[in-house]
């Protein structure tokens, strides 16, 4: 049985990736199981300089999901390269560096710096809903996506994944713009912008007022968007949004993704990634599928 997948020339041992922001730099979940179990780790969103993030509360549960507004708390790209990356390179899983910035120049500088490091791929986050400047501001306009992707590609010597925001009218326009700009792969979806109010105090639960919705509640939106994007591009797709079980992963792959990322599910079950991988294997055995790549995009729509 083949579980290996190839994303823009980088071979992953299996299609399981950790979603940025839910898994830190792997240290905490690495106590539960070996990180060799994973296809890749996509690390906590990095910025050029350290960021302190938003004030708490930063998280709340909603029906079937969670809202978060961490605001990209991270040690900055240099500290990542010095202290976190060497730890991650001890494992067979690939390392994807997730980049966020306020300006195009920020992204270019990070892409240049990270390309000289041992990371395997770069993920450009132009869809974070929790920061004021940059982030989602770049990711909701096709012309801006085209421009920033083109610019960052000039500095990226590693495959560049563009992470798309679902907070748009037509996701295919954004996907096409990223492809035209030179993206090597796409990842979708980032969180959906949401809000929750405490009816007793009449105040928003999150200090940031709004936050990003993730978890099982968003999965149908993710599956639909991956399906639509698959129809308009041949770029590899990393699908994410509420994948909690092996069945969810299969569904997302049928819709068109080549690998899947697991985020919120890690909070429910620290072994989620391992269990999801096992669930994929069970499905392949049941349906006599020898190669996991044979599932991708095989949804039958008459």
């Amino acid at each position: 049985m083949n579980m290996k997948v190839n994303i823009a020339g980088v071979e992953l041992n299996n299609p399981i990736i950790t979603a940025s922001g839910t898994y830190g730099f792997g240290r905490e979940y690495g106590e539960f199981y070996s990180l060799n179990e994973l296809g890749a780790i996509c690390v906590k969103g990095l910025t050029l300089l350290p960021r302190e993030g938003n004030p708490p509360p930063r998280i709340t549960e909603t029906y079937g999901g969670i809202l978060n507004s961490v605001g990209l708390q991270n040690p900055g790209v240099e500290a990542f390269i010095e202290y976190e990356l060497p730890e991650l390179k001890k494992y067979t899983c690939k390392v994807i560096a997730n980049m966020s910035g306020n300006t195009i120049e920020d992204y270019c500088k990070m892409a240049e710096r990270l390309s000289d490091s041992d990371v395997d791929m770069l993920e450009m986050n132009i869809s974070c809903p929790n920061v004021k400047a940059g982030g989602v501001a770049f990711g909701t306009n096709a012309d801006t996506i085209l421009n920033i992707t083109k610019e960052v590609k000039k500095y990226a010597k590693k495959p560049l994944i563009v992470k798309l925001s679902p907070n748009v009218t037509d996701i295919t326009e954004m996907a096409k713009a990223a492809e035209q700009g030179g993206a090597d792969a796409l990842s979708l979806i980032n969180t959906l912008l949401g809000m929750a109010i405490d009816i007793k105090t009449r105040r928003p639960i999150l200090a940031n007022v709004t936050g990003g919705l993730s978890g099982p509640a968003v999965k149908p939106v993710a599956v639909r968007m991956i399906y639509q994007v698959r129809q308009c591009t041949n770029l590899p797709i990393i699908g994410m949004g509420g994948v909690t079980t092996g069945d969810d992963a299969i569904e997302m792959m049928l819709a068109g993704s080549n690998a899947i990322a697991v985020g919120t599910a890690n909070f429910m079950n620290p072994y989620a990634c391992v269990d999801i991988k096992k669930g994929i294997v069970d499905y392949m055995e049941k349906y006599n599928i020898d190669d996991v790549n044979d599932i991708s995009g095989k949804v039958i729509v008459k």
């Binding site: 922001g21 839910t22 898994y23 830190g24 240290r27 905490e28 979940y29 106590e31 906590k44 350290p50 960021r51 302190e52 993030g53 004030p55 708490p56 509360p57 930063r58 998280i59 709340t60 969670i66 978060n68 961490v70 708390q73 991270n74 040690p75 900055g76 500290a79 639960i205 890690n266 909070f267 620290p270």
Partner: peptide, 26 residues
């Protein structure tokens, strides 16, 4: 106490403000 996500230190959602500056202010 604070609203919590992962519970093990990975997700950075259950933060509290400290006197440290920079990344670990929270």
């Amino acid at each position: 106490e604070e609203r919590m996500g992962c519970g093990i230190g990975a997700c950075l959602t259950c933060s509290c403000e400290t006197k440290t500056e920079g990344t670990w202010k929270y």
